[in-house]
Design a protein around this nucleic acid. Structure first.
Length: 267
DNA sequence: AACGTACCCTGCCGGC
DNA sequence: TGCCGGCAGGGTACGT
């Protein structure tokens, strides 16, 4: 589900439930996926943050819980059939759900991310000042990989997944299969701005809840960005760009379903 | 370095 | 109605 806007929405909703609270127990039966969670027990949550698609909880005692939601991970405030882990707090229980079990938890010494390789090589946060046009330009110049694959790799910019890659490329009128190093300065500038605009808007409306509803906010409420999608999941529908007579097509890029307008996103 | 493929899992949808 | 293949927001580990 969860790309940057969904993860950030989740973090914002959880934060007031966690700050200053003691994690009494983290109950689960899968120590391979949810690692060293016993170290968090009995400790207070000092702060919450997000890096790309990871949620980070700073804990007492110099520890940190790192959570990746995978494809179908999320939280609920009430019991749920796909509960994989229960977070017992002083006054309530949070239910971590994950039907496909691609999500993972780690409890580590704060900042010790050796075990989580992606965290170490992840690019800048797209909604922070660290995501500069010159740095983005330089990253893209270094590789001939397809631009969509580069966006999904997390290494040039953090937190962009399949939906927001398609939406950003549509907005900037760039074909998903263009070699990254072939993008012209004006195109990179459009893409840089599109990534920020798309993610900002999506965060503002609580992310995307698709028809299968695998992502919802912890209360069960939907996000609303799916109403603003222009490419993702719009196969065969007319392109929304004013004056464009194209029709959204679906292809496979980097093994992922990819939606784009062949008329205004040319190879 | 750049691809391709398989894999980790479960649920849902469309076609037959 | 029922079965079955295909597909899904992510990421890793292989091979060539």
């Amino acid at each position: 589900m969860p790309e940057l806007p969904e993860v950030e929405t989740t973090r914002r909703i959880l934060e007031p439930h966690l700050l200053g609270q003691t994690i009494l127990r983290l109950e689960h039966t899968d120590p391979a996926r949810y690692r060293r969670t016993e170290l968090a027990e009995g400790r207070k949550v000092l702060s919450t943050s997000r890096r790309g698609k990871f949620i980070l909880l700073e804990l007492e005692g110099g520890l940190e819980a790192v959570i990746h939601l995978g494809m179908t991970g999320g939280f609920r405030f009430t019991r749920h059939r796909h509960t994989r882990l229960r977070v017992r707090l002083e006054g309530e229980t949070l239910y971590y759900i994950d039907p496909r079990r691609f999500g993972k938890w780690w409890v580590v010494e704060k900042g010790d991310h050796d075990e989580i390789g992606l965290l170490g090589r992840m690019g800048p946060e797209p909604l922070s000042a660290a995501f500069t046009l010159p740095a983005f330009k330089q990253h893209l110049a270094q590789t001939s990989r397809k631009i969509k694959e580069v966006l999904l790799s997390q290494e040039s910019v953090a937190g962009v997944g399949n939906i927001y890659a398609d939406e950003s490329l549509w907005m900037s009128r760039i074909h998903p299969q263009r070699p990254a190093s072939s993008l012209k300065p004006a195109e990179i500038k459009r893409l840089h701005e599109a990534i920020k605009a798309v993610l900002e808007k999506a965060v503002r409306v609580g992310g995307s809840t698709l028809s299968d509803a695998s992502y919802k906010q912890p209360s069960g409420e939907s996000g609303y960005f799916q109403l603003e999608h222009n490419a993702y999941d719009k196969t065969d529908q007319p392109c929304h760009r004013p004056g464009c007579r194209g029709k959204i097509r679906k292809i496979v890029v980097g093994g992922r379903g990819t939606h784009f307008c062949p008329n205004c996103q040319r190879l």
